[in-house]
Design a protein around this nucleic acid. Structure first.
Lengths: 336, 336
DNA sequence: CGCATTTGCTCAATCGATGAAGCAAGATTT
DNA sequence: AAATCTTGCTTCATCGATTGAGCAAATGCG
């Protein structure tokens, strides 16, 4: 491993020497509180000029070591492979920077061990706050961080020990289901019960979406058998295999499907292609997630877009107001 | 801004006190070179136990301040909104960690000023190395980093001052164009020249893809007019507007299109929907980029997948072999 | 037993930035 | 003119981990 050589970086001591002044003065000037420290304008300008000439860069490690707060805000994300998490991360970075915080992001690929490891690493980097996004065990992260006096906020999936900001999964799912049913009615003339594909039975979002899904069926007086629900995880392969197996089992299919994420949708579509009982056109699909390309290409695919800007705005609000209570903020998603 | 309160974190001095030993011994034990420092196994175990009991977390800032190399590797990415950059970032994180490096990632939203700002910040964090991915001005970043003795590698878009790892855009584009032409021939019976949509005229990838695009036309003896090339940037809105304007201008359209990224494809499809001269089915589209959902839903869309694992493998190879030469490694993309 | 070596630790300087405390020179007040 | 205040700096301890140097005790050797 040869990430090689740096010829001694310029420090405030070098600058002090060059300016014929003290390191203390240099520090005061460069971190902006030279007025407070009563440094003259001339000296401030001289130091600033020299710093620029020398291409001086602050040593954050040294600076942070001395300061009480790091202004580093950590975020743990499960994946980067879809627009939802992508936009969360991108907007989070922007908003954090706008608030003078330094965003530190880590992707844990839905691996619980990595999640904990990542939280631990963030603590080592003295983060002021950790956002656990779609974490498999958010409370474990909260406990770990709390022990170090670091607060956490759960995003996307709620926890019991820290404030959570999530989508209103129930309302979103109910409306999405209603729309799929309507589409089935309009296109196929029937209102058979839909199938629910993807997600983990244990996770809060999946449970709430299922509740909305069932409610919408009940609203229409449609009886929903348990076997219509296939909570096989989010991974495309899992969904594909699950549908395959169900196919083999001889249980009845419906042409209307509620799919739990674009990632799962990938597996569903693959299955439709390879082994679906009827062609793609003969399905009415709804997806609890949004992807602009799918919205454009999938004519018979309804989508729910989770309101990322609103979720992040709420999250930063919680941080700024120092809210520690394990409340759950449910943000209504946007339907298209 | 209240990222509040931490009750004095546990330090090696606290642990030393508890273990009845010195901070020096604690440090040696916890960072693994206690053998080298001739600490007895008993003491090592005692310290380790106490550290665990206390939930001790190393203060990276203090540790890094003292060490010569930070083992932090920075990556600058333009966007997270597509599978290409998403997989780059995700795999980069995994590979970096596997090599004992700490990945620090920043998204600059194709903003040149932010890119420079991000590079500067990374230097402050004492990164050992910076990967500039799809940077608008990679050489500027290289210069900045070089001044601090930090090496850089360009990914996706090449620079003149540091080693670059990019796709073989020429070969990929030539083959993709060939396929679109073949599809046009088969489906529409004609071999009219294609249109090229998206990218920036100045950027290396766009130029190389254009070269491949032209070459493929030449291979078939098809004359390609300049007006068929619309390098309007990558953003969907830009592409949509550009096609709209072209529509109004009365210039001839072709039903075959070479689209420069999935992001641009979004704009193209939107235009087809809203104002295209014929329906979507009547187009033969090729996209220099890959998205599994598009691959599944877009029947008449050919895709080129850039070989991210190979690109990153090559990149880490360059780092490990300490290669400083501004060579360009071209990685063949994968066609489907 | 006496000397050399090994073992197992501690001491103290150091990394670079920060900020409280202090100090000298000049300005202002009485 | 003496006392006080203000201005514009410098000095120095500090943050927590690391590491070269050093030292006492234990062990080995002749």
């Amino acid at each position: 491993m040869s990430l090689d050589r740096q010829q001694k970086r310029t420090t405030i001591y070098d600058l002090a020497e060059l300016a014929g002044t003290s390191a203390s003065a240099v520090s005061a000037v460069l971190n902006g509180n030279w007025k407070k420290r009563r440094i003259s304008k001339q000296l401030a300008e001289k130091i600033t000029r020299i710093a620029e000439e020398q291409g001086y860069a602050l040593n954050m490690q040294a600076s942070l070591l001395r300061r009480e707060k790091s202004h580093i805000i950590g975020m743990i994300v499960p994946k980067y492979d879809n627009r939802y998490f992508g936009s969360i991360v991108e907007l989070f970075e922007t908003m954090a920077r706008d608030k003078g915080l330094f965003p530190l992001i880590t992707c844990t690929r839905r691996d619980p061990a990595l999640e904990i490891e990542a939280a631990r690493t963030m603590l080592s980097y003295q983060v002021d706050c950790v956002i656990a996004t779609g974490a498999t065990d958010p409370d474990r992260i909260t406990e770990l961080c709390a022990a170090a006096g670091v607060r956490t906020i759960n995003l996307d999936l709620p926890g019991k020990l820290a404030p959570s900001v999530i989508s209103d999964n129930f309302a979103g799912a109910r409306e999405l289901t209603r729309r799929i049913l309507a589409s089935c009615h309009q296109r196929f003339g029937s209102m058979e019960p839909l199938m629910f594909v993807g997600g983990r039975g244990g996770d809060h979002n999946t449970m709430e979406r299922l509740r909305g899904f069932r409610q919408a069926h009940a609203d229409h007086g449609i009886h929903l058998e348990d076997h219509r629900v296939i909570a096989c995880g989010y991974a495309p392969e899992k969904a594909q295999t699950a549908l395959q197996e169900r196919s083999a089992s001889g249980l009845p299919f419906s042409r209307g499907m509620f799919v739990n994420s674009t990632i799962t949708l990938e597996g569903v579509l693959r299955w439709v292609r390879l082994a679906g009982p009827v062609s793609e056109q003969e399905f009415a699909v709804g997806c609890f997630d949004y992807d602009p390309l799918v919205a454009l290409l999938g004519d018979n695919i309804e989508m729910v877009r989770q309101d990322v800007p609103a979720m992040l705005a709420r999250m930063f609000e919680l941080i700024e107001h120092g809210n520690f209570e394990p409340t759950v903020s449910e943000i209504p998603p946007v339907l298209r």
